[in-house]
Structure formats: structure tokens, C-alpha cells
């Protein structure tokens, strides 16, 4: 039949990929520019943040600082001090324990506690960020799995049961209004008293944060099929289970992936927060905590960046899965 000519040519996908690469290349420069501006602001911010400590060190080394003596400078404005001592500001970017570490200090610390240690054959020693990241990541992944499963189950219940439809959502919303920081220690203590400790309590806190976006997204997704689509299945006398498996779940996939991206980031936050109030000895949260105990700001910042990179990697993995799955399902467009 002549309609065959109307079907898309097999080359269309390849051309699409080429366009994607070209778009990505065009997007590089604006992104780099914004990163450059942020780094510049960061370096500039080190000046007022670190000026007092830097001047103290310069004075101890024998330089003449105005006004004289750390006591006199303590309550002075950092801007005034910067104006009065323009020649002694070089130290603000190279202190051992700065209020605000400079970008290169964080980068060096990140490198030394990851690649550097790996090169030295100690990739999973106690000081390695790999170790800490893995501890947090394992709780994140377990919690994300539990949260996603719970979220999907609740959404299926909400869509199929009127009582659940009316009652579950308010509770889900209420659960998210309680600060997790207040709740986390209680969960840890309660579970510990019944003999559950280690990975699971952290994962549960992580799940607590990640189920919510999945519920919201999946309720919307499971209700996405149009009335005609549902009528079609009614004409086949399909059961509700068949409608769920054959129509509602496949139709909800785009919504599921959007929710998973939010959920996995929330999971990571949950796992880190769960490490804070419990005196955890390992994990990115423990690293943040130890850094703040000992005034190791460089360590805090590098742990923060490690967490951010981890979150970006997790979201990126889900975006990749989304492209593969939806592309395979013909729903990517």
C-alpha cells in the first residue's frame, strides 16, 4: 500500500543523535561561563571571610599590620581591614583552617582523598572519600529502593481505592512537613532499642524522604490514560489488575522517571542527615560532622562536593535509564 512511504525512514534516529551532540556542544560555553563566574565570586568571597586570620598570621611572621594586634582587629570590619592592609591579603587563599576554603584547596583535598589515595593503593582506607561515599551510597540505594517500592504501592492503592484516595495523601504530605532532622535521631534510637542498627535505620530515613515524590508522580501517572483508553479495556471486560498492568503502569513510566530523579536526590539527603545525629563514624555525613568538630573546613567542603557529585551521578544514571526505557517504549518524544 502507498502508505508505506509515510513511515519514518530508519535514518531518522541517527540524525536525531547528531542534532543532540550539536546542541550539547553549543551548551558547553554558557555552562563554562557560569561556572567561571561562580568560581570568581568564590575566590573573591575568601577575602573578607579569611582576612582576619590571614592578617594575624602575617603579623606573627613579622609584618606590620594596621591596626596592630589581633585584639584590636577582632571587631573591625573586614572591608576596612582589607583597605588598610592591601599588601598582606595573599594568605586568604592558602590557610590551613580557613573560614572559607578557596576552590583550589577543596579541589586538592578532593583529589588527595580520592584519586591520590587510590593511586597510593589505599582507595578504601578510613580517610578515603570512596569509603565514606560508599557507606552513604549503600544506605541511599537501599532507602531509595524501599521508598520507590512504597511510593508505587501507595499510588496504586490511591488510584484503586476510594478510601485510600481520600486518606493517604494528607498523611503523606504531613509526613514531609516534619523536619527530618528532628525525626532522624528518634528513628535511630527507637530502632536501636529493638536491636536494629547499621544500614537499615539510615535506609529507612532515606526512604522516608524519597517515597513522597514517587507517590505524587505515580498517582498522576497512573491516572494519565485518557477515558477512551480505559473504555477500550472495558469493552474487553478487562479486570482492574489487567488495566493496571497493561495500561496504567506502562502509561505512568514518564511520570515515574521524573519522580525518581527527585526521589534519588532526596534519598541521598536522607542518608547524609541520618548520619549526623547518630555519631556515625563513616559516611559523608560523618565526614561533615567530624570536619565541623575539628574546624576542618576544607574537609567539610570536600565532603559537600563529594555528596553533590554523587547526587549528580545518581540523577544522571536515572536520566540515562529514562532515555533507554522510554526510547524503547516509543514514549521518548
Amino acid at each position: 500500500m502507498a502508505d508505506a512511504a509515510l513511515t519514518a525512514s530508519p535514518g531518522a534516529g541517527v540524525a536525531g543523535r547528531g542534532r543532540f551532540a550539536a546542541r550539547a556542544a553549543r551548551a558547553v560555553w554558557p555552562v563554562l561561563m557560569i561556572v567561571g563566574v561562580i568560581v570568581a565570586i568564590w575566590y573573591a568571597a575568601c577575602l573578607p571571610m579569611n582576612v582576619k586570620e590571614s592578617l594575624n598570621q602575617a603579623e606573627r611572621a613579622g609584618a606590620v599590620i594596621v591596626p596592630e594586634g589581633g585584639q584590636a582587629r577582632r571587631d573591625a570590619s573586614p572591608w576596612v581591614l582589607m583597605a588598610q592592609n592591601p599588601g598582606h591579603l595573599g594568605g586568604v587563599w592558602s590557610q590551613d583552617r580557613p573560614r572559607l576554603p578557596a576552590p583550589h584547596q577543596v579541589a586538592v583535598e578532593l583529589y588527595e582523598t580520592t584519586v591520590g589515595m587510590a593511586l597510593a593503593g589505599r582507595a578504601f582506607s578510613n580517610r578515603s572519600l570512596f569509603t565514606h561515599a560508599w557507606v552513604t551510597l549503600s544506605a541511599t540505594l537501599l532507602g531509595f529502593g524501599i521508598g520507590t517500592a512504597l511510593g508505587i504501592l501507595l499510588a496504586v492503592g490511591i488510584v484503586h481505592n476510594r478510601a485510600m484516595d481520600m486518606s493517604v495523601m494528607p498523611w503523606a504530605i504531613a509526613s514531609q512537613t516534619i523536619p527530618i532532622l528532628a525525626l532522624a535521631p528518634m528513628i535511630i534510637v527507637v530502632l536501636n532499642s529493638v536491636g536494629i542498627s547499621g544500614l537499615l535505620p539510615k535506609a529507612l530515613i532515606s526512604a522516608y524522604l524519597s517515597f513522597f515524590p514517587v507517590v505524587v508522580g505515580m498517582v498522576k501517572g497512573l491516572r494519565a490514560p485518557e477515558a477512551a483508553q480505559l473504555d477500550l479495556l472495558r469493552t474487553y471486560s478487562a479486570t482492574r489488575a489487567e488495566t493496571l498492568w497493561k495500561l496504567r503502569l506502562p502509561a505512568s513510566m514518564p511520570y515515574l522517571f521524573a519522580s525518581l530523579k527527585v526521589g534519588v536526590a532526596a534519598s541521598l539527603v536522607g542518608a547524609i542527615v541520618a548520619e549526623l545525629p547518630t555519631g556515625a563514624v563513616a559516611g559523608l555525613g560523618a565526614r561533615l560532622l567530624a570536619g565541623s568538630y575539628y574546624g576542618q573546613t576544607v574537609q567539610i567542603w570536600s565532603a559537600l562536593f563529594a555528596a553533590a557529585l554523587l547526587a549528580a551521578a545518581l540523577v544522571g544514571l536515572i536520566a540515562l535509564a529514562q532515555r533507554l526505557v522510554l526510547g524503547r517504549m516509543g514514549m521518548a518524544r
Partner: peptide, 25 residues
Amino acid sequence: GYVFQAAGLYPWRTIAGNVKLPLEI
């Protein structure tokens, strides 16, 4: 058999898969 105004084929199923839908159910 009922035919609606919109073809309403499932995008995630092939044409054969769509025709198979009522047969599976």
C-alpha cells in the same frame, strides 16, 4: 468490537502487540 475516534494505539506496543491486546486479555 469497538473502534474509537482516536486510534488509541499504545505507543509502547508494536502494531502486532496492539492487535494482540484484546486477545491477551
